[in-house]
Computed example of a mutant assay.
Amino acid sequence: MFVILASLAATTVPAGKTFRCTPTRVWDGDGPLWCAEGPRIRLSGIAARETDDTCRSNQPCPSASAQAARGALVNLVGTPIGRSREGHVLVRGPTLTCQSLGNGKGIRTAAWCSSPRVGDLSCAMVATGTVLRWKRYWRRHRCENGM
């Protein structure tokens, strides 16, 4: 069991590190977004509905459905190419550049990510109207449009 836990912990990128992520899977509108390089990213500063369309009591609750948020993220990061047996949307898209904020709960890395297609993913997701800014984690983050 120690070996399994050690290998899972290795996928969390330490805070402050810049890393690359070639997206391969999307679970929901705020992540995890799976990277070919290993990490699973929880996009920083935003909140989406859970896949069953519920919201957690300790986070903002957008009016858009979980399916709409996941579809928006899929379209922002690349092209859908299928489904995994676990329910992830499989994607193919350009490599993202991400800045880690550290552990995003479990084996996820909380990160601000930028796409060569759309720029800042958290800002782009807020602009879709399918997620909400989560003030607790957004802090001083700025989008190009001043949001």
Rank of each mutant, 00 (worst) to 15 (best):
V26I: 15
R139W: 11
S57D: 15
S65V: 01
T24R: 09
R40A: 14
W112N: 14
L73S: 00
G82I: 06
N58M: 09
P23N: 03
R140C: 04
R49Q: 12
R70I: 03
H141R: 10
R49F: 11
G45K: 14
G29K: 04
C55D: 14
T109D: 05
A72R: 14
G146M: 13
Q59Y: 11
T22I: 08
S65R: 00
S44E: 04
V26F: 05
P94I: 06
W138I: 11
R20N: 08
V26N: 00
C35V: 04
Q59S: 09
T128M: 14
R83L: 13
S57H: 10
T54S: 07
E37A: 03
F19C: 02
T24H: 03
W27R: 03
R20Q: 08
R40F: 06
L76H: 01
G29V: 08
V89H: 07
M125G: 08
L43C: 02
G71Y: 06
L43S: 03
G45T: 11
P80R: 02
L96M: 00
T109F: 01
N145C: 08
I46A: 10
G93V: 06
P32Q: 05
K135R: 14
V13W: 02
P62E: 12
A72H: 08
V13Y: 01
A69D: 07
A15I: 00
T109C: 05
E86T: 10
L8S: 00
G45M: 11
I107C: 07
R83C: 01
T54A: 00
R70A: 09
M1D: 00
A66W: 01
G29P: 01
C113H: 01
L43K: 05
P62M: 10
A47G: 10
V118D: 12
N58V: 10
L101E: 09
W134L: 07
V131F: 13
C98I: 05
N75C: 07
G31N: 05
V74M: 11
W112R: 14
T54M: 01
P60Q: 13
V126S: 15
R85N: 13
S65C: 01
R83Q: 06
